[in-house]
Design a protein around this nucleic acid. Structure first.
Lengths: 219, 219
DNA sequence: TCGTCGATGTTGACACTGTCTACAAAGGAG
DNA sequence: CTCCTTTGTAGACAGTGTCAACATCGACGA
């Protein structure tokens, strides 16, 4: 039996501890205003210890960024699992709306790490595998809309860009824009409006008639 | 007659010179990776000289941010002045689209300052007067759409949020997202798709039929 | 005309940062 | 037990924002 937290010379799990502490630091102090040395202090280790696990501070930023993206993808999948409905078209449309809700909720619940992940100047050059990329999740949801015939193949073209722009932009609005101090009710109301606008925009290409509660998660 | 650039002890226009140099620094090195001391060096003045004009580094950031916003507002107004067309409805719709184009163009042409202006943690608490606020420009364009009957008062509600989300999100996409390396053609194509989606979304509430070139700036 | 005084710019210092190099301790392979 | 790789430490360096003390200038009242 090993004592995990025994203060031995060799920490044992330092890399993970540093990542966790860095995440805490970012959450507390924002995506820019934290230091590697302070992260070391939090873990109870000397400055420079981090350099055995990360060649540069930015490498730790990249790790945090990728981890955050992965968490976002997980959150989206969990949300998508909740979508119900007998009508496949309705279900596909709800999936798109729910993706948007999950995205914004994540951004609001962890704003500093969200910003870190999307702002990191050291943009991860090779775009991540679709499994780790929120963009990929959106792509498949949109493919689903094509399969059920709600989205024409022409409208499918660049649809990621449109949807992602709207939802990511809305998230920014909530984090650092005019909706910063807004309450949940106001914010959710506005979000539903955005989601309806997206849905309606595609509905217009197929002549679908939209009911008031179509986009709720379903029953 | 005074020699403007004579290296006297008192600079005379140091405040403005610092602002200009800081803008250059941000453009060269990004919104985070520049220093007050370097700005002093660029102007040929000691470190600390800046402290006679800005109490903190962040104060200079705020000034840069406000200046950038003002330039953005100017750019939008210039774009709006180009919108033509006899049909007032068409003109109002084109105004909305042109606002989006102007916004994205500005973001792409000055990405680092654009990001600085929207990312500054030191968010200017009192929201700026409508004259200095891109948000205000958008508001009036949307009011115009209501006046000509294209936008119902209900749809007008929160319409800023929807439009701004889409266009700002798209700008981010172009600056640091998947559209980062895209050429003008690809980017503009995608942008037009976003603009059409916005327009179509509101058109859907009034049953307007949309032609292929409706949103061009007009003739 | 001269002296004074506030505004503006300089110098030096402090604590803090990321990062480099040299050193030390731990733990596994032989 | 010995040796070597891995992991953590100590110290140093340049660079940063900021503060306090000092220097210089320009304007204004005597």
């Amino acid at each position: 039996m090993r004592r995990v937290s025994a203060p031995t010379y060799h920490h044992g799990r330092l890399r993970q501890a540093l990542i966790d502490a860095a995440a805490d630091a970012v959450r507390e102090r924002g995506p820019e205003d934290w230091s590697l040395r302070d992260v070391g202090r939090r873990v109870g280790v000397s400055h420079n210890a981090a350099y055995r696990h990360f060649a540069h501070r930015d490498d730790l930023v990249v790790v945090l960024s990728e981890l955050t993206m992965a968490r976002l993808v997980d959150a989206l999948h969990q949300r998508l699992a909740l979508v119900k409905g007998d009508d496949p078209v309705l279900r596909a449309r709800r999936a798109l709306a729910e993706t948007g809700r999950g995205y914004v909720d994540f951004a609001i619940s962890d704003p500093h790490l969200f910003r870190l992940a999307f702002t990191s100047t050291v943009a991860t050059e090779p775009s991540p595998p679709p499994e780790r990329d929120p963009y990929g999740v959106l792509s498949r949801v949109l493919d689903g809309l094509v399969e059920v015939g709600y989205l024409t193949p022409e409208a499918r073209q660049d649809a990621e860009l449109t949807c992602w722009s709207a939802v990511h932009g809305f998230s920014i609005l909530c984090i650092e824009g005019p909706l910063r101090g807004a309450g949940d009710a106001e914010r959710n109301g506005a979000l539903e409006q955005v989601l309806v606008a997206i849905d309606r925009s595609y509905a217009a290409t197929t002549g679908t008639v939209i009911g008031p509660d179509d986009l709720r998660v379903g029953a």
